[in-house]
Amino acid sequence: MVNVEIERVCFSYPGADILHDVTFCIGPGEMTGLIGPNGSGKSTLIKCIDTILKPKGSILLNGKDVLKMDQVDLAKNIGLVPQHGTSAMDSTVFETVLMGRRPHSAWRIRDEDIDKVADTLDRLNIGDLAMRDFASLSGGQKQMVLLARAICQEPQVLLLDEPTSALDIRHQLEVLDIVNNLVKERHMSAIIALHDLNLGARYTDSMVILRNGKIFSAGKPDDLYTPDMIEEVYGVKAVVLTVLGKPHVVPVSPVKIETFIPALMETGFKEIPA
Rank of each mutant, 00 (worst) to 15 (best):
G139M: 06
R110D: 05
F24R: 04
I109W: 08
G63T: 14
K237F: 03
T120P: 03
A193W: 09
H171V: 02
W107S: 12
S189K: 01
V236G: 00
L210I: 04
P254R: 09
G63M: 08
L224G: 07
T32P: 00
M131C: 13
M207F: 02
L137Q: 11
M188S: 08
T23G: 01
T267E: 13
T267V: 08
R211S: 15
D17Y: 00
Y234T: 02
S206G: 06
F260W: 04
G140W: 14
I178K: 01
I257T: 04
C152Y: 04
D90W: 04
D73N: 14
E271G: 11
P221S: 04
T267Y: 10
R132A: 12
P28E: 06
T120S: 03
L158H: 10
R186V: 01
Q71L: 14
L159C: 05
E231D: 14
L199S: 03
L80F: 15
M207A: 02
E266A: 15
T259D: 15
P55Y: 04
E7Y: 00
D65F: 01
M31Y: 00
G57T: 06
V250I: 15
L158Q: 08
K184D: 07
M1H: 06
V179A: 02
R101V: 06
A130W: 12
R149T: 14
L173P: 00
Q156H: 13
G213N: 07
A88R: 11
W107Q: 09
H20Y: 10
D119K: 15
E95R: 05
A190M: 05
D119C: 09
Q71Y: 03
R211G: 03
N180P: 00
E154W: 05
V236E: 07
S87T: 12
V4W: 03
G79Y: 11
S189W: 01
G15Q: 09
I191F: 02
E266F: 10
E95V: 09
N181Y: 05
L53H: 10
M1C: 00
I215Y: 03
A118P: 00
K64G: 03
D205Y: 02
S105P: 00
L176V: 08
K237Y: 02
P103N: 10
R202G: 02
A88D: 15
A274F: 08
P254Y: 07
V233F: 10
G268A: 14
G29A: 04
G200C: 11
P254H: 10
M31H: 03
N77H: 15
A193G: 09
A190V: 03
L194P: 01
P227G: 06
F11G: 01
G85P: 13
G219R: 12
L197S: 02
L80G: 05
S40F: 05
S189E: 03
F24W: 08
A274P: 11
N3Q: 10
F260T: 14
D111V: 02
L61C: 11
R123G: 05
V255N: 12
L210E: 10
L60P: 03
P227F: 02
R108N: 14
K270L: 12
E258L: 13
L244Q: 15
H187T: 00
V243H: 11
V97E: 04
V97S: 06
P221D: 05
D113H: 07
